[in-house]
Simulated assay, not measured.
Amino acid sequence: MKLQKFTLFVLVLLCLACNDKTKKNKVEKANTESKIHTGNMKIEYVGRAADNEGMHVWGSSPIQDKEGKTHLFAAQWSTKTQPGNFSGWFKDCEIGHYVSDSPEGPFKYLGVTVEDKDGLFNSPHNPTISNIDGKYQLCFIVNENNDLKTQRIIMYVADDLNDTWRPAKGAEADGTILRQTKDSTVWNYTARLGVSNPSLIKYKGKYLLYHKSVVRKEPKGYVYSYGVVVADNVEGPYIHNPTRVTEEKMPLEDAYAFTMKDSVYLMSRDFRGTLGNNGGGLLWKSGDGFSFPAEKTVRAYEDLQHYVGEEHLKDAVSYRGKKDGHLERAQILFIDEKPAYLYLATGVQAKPGYGSSSHVFKITF
């Protein structure tokens, strides 16, 4: 995805402006929308993206087909699963497929793309879709028998978006493209919850698959960090980069990788509220894709309440997190090689009969 230098400049300015507003605690709220203007670019809250009655819908990864329709691939599970908590995500999840004539919706539910097979291929979750080298890649996580310590990453590949997916050629027979390393010299050898939350890009002729691990922190505790594996072919096999790409002092979650000009970016949740509250997100920048310095990281977005206002959420149900609506699982739709829409998930729901859902934000110039 190649953008002109102007696009990069404006996007970074936007995030810096958001960070400045947070620090000064001057947040503009509205009942139905909130707009942030910087130069010729703005981000505007549109509304809900994918939702499904009686279901939790968690995250929406967007892609457009050749006809210009927008497809969303999202994790979903019944609200009746483990009522009162959110644990269905790693017990009974599946990946659903939604489509719309517009990136703003409304989105029609097409059906299940990846089923929950229980056992060794349990609860497919946190999908991210990409289109690299003329093929589509669908990456997601599974675990074994509801055990989070066994999380691993799957890669499926297809020529179209008709759900004719097959395992990547460089993967294991079931599509497993990455497991926790057994090499003690690799950064996430001590990971307590396997490898998870993939994001795939092509950069300078190589294929980079970013992933999260929760690793030991000295002298005690654990920290959420990201690393990368590298391949010469998009379908693998992938080789571990031995060092982490993010710094221990700034934990993150749900990073989405993308490229602009000659740089690589991650948009992630601000997991410990390093640059604001933990309901918002961060934008990380790297010059080589292997190191994202903390000093180059800025605030990217705020919680849902910032955009819709407290009144809009007064009667909402919080299935996960606080009622201000933590926004997670950032995913970006590029149109004509420019960032056009941002999709974020939240566990707060104001619509009766529905569980968690995703929300869409418009990026315009």
Rank of each mutant, 00 (worst) to 15 (best):
Tyr265Phe: 15
Ile154Tyr: 10
Leu344Ala: 04
Met260His: 04
Tyr189Ser: 00
Tyr319Arg: 05
Ala173Pro: 01
Pro124Ala: 13
Tyr224Met: 08
Glu44Trp: 00
Leu344Gln: 05
Lys212Ile: 04
His56Glu: 08
Tyr203Gln: 10
Glu310Met: 05
Gly68His: 10
Glu295Lys: 14
Trp187Leu: 05
Thr81Trp: 08
Gly88Ala: 04
Thr32Ile: 12
His97Pro: 00
Val157Glu: 11
Lys261Asn: 13
Ser87Leu: 11
Asp160Asn: 15
Leu14Phe: 07
Ile239Ser: 14
Pro83Gly: 12
Ile363Gly: 01
Leu161Gly: 02
Asn162Ser: 13
Thr22Cys: 07
Ser358His: 02
Ser123Phe: 03
Asp174Cys: 00
Ser286Asn: 02
Tyr319Cys: 07
Arg48His: 12
Lys296Val: 01
Val12Lys: 14
Cys139Leu: 15
Glu248Tyr: 07
Glu94Tyr: 04
Met250His: 06
Asp315Lys: 12
Val228His: 03
His359Pro: 02
Val12Cys: 07
Thr70Met: 06
Val57Met: 09
Gly88Leu: 01
Gly175Val: 06
Arg272Asp: 15
Ser318Cys: 11
Glu28Val: 14
Asn241Phe: 14
His37Arg: 11
Leu72Arg: 02
Lys182Cys: 05
His312Lys: 15
Tyr301Met: 06
Lys29Thr: 15
Asn31Pro: 12
Lys108Pro: 00
Thr128Leu: 10
Ile332Leu: 09
Asp315Val: 01
Gly119Thr: 07
Thr346Asp: 01
His312Glu: 13
Thr190Pro: 02
Asn241Ile: 09
Thr128Ser: 13
Ser358Glu: 04
Asn146Phe: 11
Ser123Ile: 02
Leu8Ser: 10
Ala171Gly: 12
Val234Arg: 06
Ala171Ile: 07
Ile154Pro: 01
Pro124Leu: 12
Thr190Lys: 05
Lys117Glu: 14
Glu218Trp: 09
Arg269Tyr: 00
Ser78Asn: 12
Gly309Lys: 07
Leu16Ala: 11
Asp20Tyr: 11
Tyr222Cys: 03
Ser123Asp: 05
His211Ser: 11
Val229Asn: 12
Met155Leu: 13
Ser130Trp: 05
Val298His: 02
Glu311Gln: 14
Val223Leu: 10
Ala316Glu: 03
Gly287His: 11
Leu3His: 05
Asp133Phe: 04
Tyr45Met: 07
Ile63Phe: 08
Ala171Leu: 09
Leu200His: 00
Lys66Asp: 14
Asn126Trp: 06
Lys35Asp: 08
Ser184Pro: 13
Thr113His: 04
Pro219Thr: 10
Met267Val: 15
Phe290Ile: 08
Trp165Ala: 02
Lys338Glu: 15
Asp183Thr: 09
Lys204Ile: 02
Pro124Phe: 11
Tyr256Cys: 08
